[in-house]
């Protein structure tokens, strides 16, 4: 019996410890987010501006270099939606309604989500690995003693780059997914491309596209902050960097999906 309560007590303890840890991490994430924006907006007044060159460099690696993979995934997803949509709608004899289905689901949901997941996998892990490695090799300390705020120097440029490139990637993803859908419809339903796109733009309103863009802004923040928090939290050498990298991808992806759910719930009612 004594052993049983011991087990229960240690279970409760571990749940409690994990909760405290989670709350602490969330608080740290919020503080880091505020600080990153602070340096972006007020850095030049404190003689520590966030450099344009650094933002562009991050935009290249996080955004531009992600174009091929995000493009390919979006194209395939658009085509997949067309295949499934036609298959499902055929039971009601309404397969020409597939255009509306693709247009809405791509712009409101799939384009930002696919972009977010891929960027989380590419850049979330890279952010965590870079900051984590710098933490264990004392490079973060070196930055601080030189008088360079590590958040200003490492996190703010990535945040700005993500906020710039993720919406752009999402728009690109919109177009390529629609193209994928259009090409399949052209083959399966003999629906010419111009007509597909004419119907798409007829049924879409600006708010549909904007919803995707707003989501991508939220995802940019989620990916950057989760990557940075895990990177700065590294303590246990190379193994710690590996763990932080994995954690950044897993938490980043689930963070995106949860944020998506909440945002969709709040905006679609």
């Amino acid at each position: 019996m004594a052993e049983k309560t011991g087990g229960l007590a240690s279970f409760v303890t571990s749940v409690g410890m994990r909760s405290v840890q989670a709350v602490r991490e969330t608080g740290y994430l919020a503080a880091l987010l505020v600080e990153s924006f602070y340096w972006l907006l007020a850095g030049f007044r404190r003689r520590q501006p966030v450099r344009m060159a650094a933002i562009f460099k991050e935009a290249m690696s996080a955004g531009v270099n992600a174009v091929p993979i995000v493009g390919l995934a979006s194209f395939a997803t658009g085509m997949m939606l067309a295949i499934q949509g036609i298959h499902t709608l055929r039971t009601f004899g309404a397969e020409d309604q597939v255009v509306l289905g693709i247009a809405l689901s791509v712009t409101r949901e799939f384009a930002p989500l696919i972009t977010g997941i891929f960027v989380a996998g590419r850049s979330g892990s890279a952010i965590a690995a870079r900051i984590g490695t710098m933490t264990i090799s004392q490079e973060i300390d070196a930055l601080r003693v030189i008088g360079i705020n590590p958040v200003r120097y490492l996190v703010s440029p990535i945040l700005a780059a993500m906020l710039l490139t993720l919406p752009a990637l999402t728009i690109m993803s919109d177009l390529l997914a629609l193209l994928g859908g259009a090409l399949y419809c052209a083959g399966e339903l003999s629906l010419p491309l111009p007509i597909f796109f004419a119907r798409t733009f007829e049924s879409l309103i600006a708010a549909d596209v904007l919803q995707g863009v707003y989501k991508s802004l939220i995802f940019a923040v989620v990916i950057t902050m989760i990557g940075a928090v895990n990177g700065f939290g590294v303590t246990a050498g190379a193994e710690g960097v590996g763990r932080a990298t994995t954690r950044a991808v897993v938490l980043g992806s689930i963070g995106i999906i949860l944020a998506d759910m909440v945002f969709t719930f709040l905006t679609s009612r």
């Binding site: 003689r47 490695t133 090799s137 300390d141 070196a142 003693v145």
Partner: peptide, 24 residues
């Protein structure tokens, strides 16, 4: 405060044990 520390740091140089050079 942070600003005073920022100014003082310009008058401080540090060589860390492992060098802590920026690897990138």
């Amino acid at each position: 405060d942070a600003d005073e520390m920022f100014d003082l740091r310009k008058n401080m140089g540090v060589a860390f044990q492992g060098g802590a050079l920026f690897n990138s």
